[in-house]
Design a protein around this nucleic acid. Structure first.
Lengths: 126, 126
DNA sequence: TGAGTTACTAATAAAAATGTGAGTATGAGC
DNA sequence: GCTCATACTCACATTTTTATTAGTAACTCA
């Protein structure tokens, strides 16, 4: 994994923005790849590691695991380890996470109206 | 600038997610560093390159320029080149961008309630 | 002619995000 | 004791994102 260099301009800029407005902290969490999909799947009761993996074509164990950890850490989901054999773990969305998904749905609705007109930069263009 | 490798798993995963849900396209645009700040500043009539730069401690010309281009490209802002000497350019938020900022304010309000409880991963932890 | 200003762009470097493949712990069942 | 399954973790490689430095175009004013 990457090690952060505490004094790099990159990290300083990140801290600066997170101090400046909470929105930047929020976007730092939900703006990462897979995060919103995983949150929405868990909301729809896809609650297990292996089920999530099935639903997300191409995600690797490592990445799924790390996103789940961050979501637990951010209290958007909860993790329950069931004393079963074989080992079984369930993830569930929290009240806080649920509120966030409401806003994400609005964001998505906005996108459906406005994104068709958006041409993303072609690779290598910018 | 970076060149995209069309067939890298990274790029394929990105396309997969953008196909899967518009939300991922939206987050890909607004989840980038500086983007939300710049959009909100332009909404507050900070309309010129140099003024934006003053407001954003530490942003470099290159980065500001590339974010502005992407925002124009995504039709969240408009660019007007004024026939003045010295050269003067003004950016203004569009109707679409304005709608987006409404949702961003909600996201920010959510963050103010829930983020205090969030401990971000320490550098090097995950 | 040459310096100054605004609003950039290009090449490249540094850092972080993302992905790969192998390995781990637990206990069941053969 | 060996293999299997689930749900991971770790070290390392790849790719993208972000930042740095230098330079450009257009036009003014001295």
């Amino acid at each position: 994994m990457s090690q952060k260099k505490i004094n790099s301009t990159n990290t300083l800029n990140e801290f600066y923005l997170e101090e400046r407005c909470t929105l930047n902290k929020v976007l730092k969490i939900v703006g990462k790849r897979w995060v919103s999909e995983i949150l929405l799947l868990i909301k729809q009761d896809v609650s297990r590691f292996s089920n999530l993996k099935e639903c997300l074509n191409g995600i690797s164990d490592n990445v799924l695991s790390s996103v789940l950890n961050e979501l637990v850490n951010s209290k958007l989901i909860e993790k329950e380890i069931l004393k079963q054999i074989p080992l079984r773990v369930e993830y569930r969305i929290t009240e806080s996470g649920l509120e966030l998904t409401d806003i994400m749905h609005q964001l998505c609705a906005w996108g459906k109206v406005h994104i068709p007109y958006v041409t993303r930069m072609k690779p290598g263009f910018n």
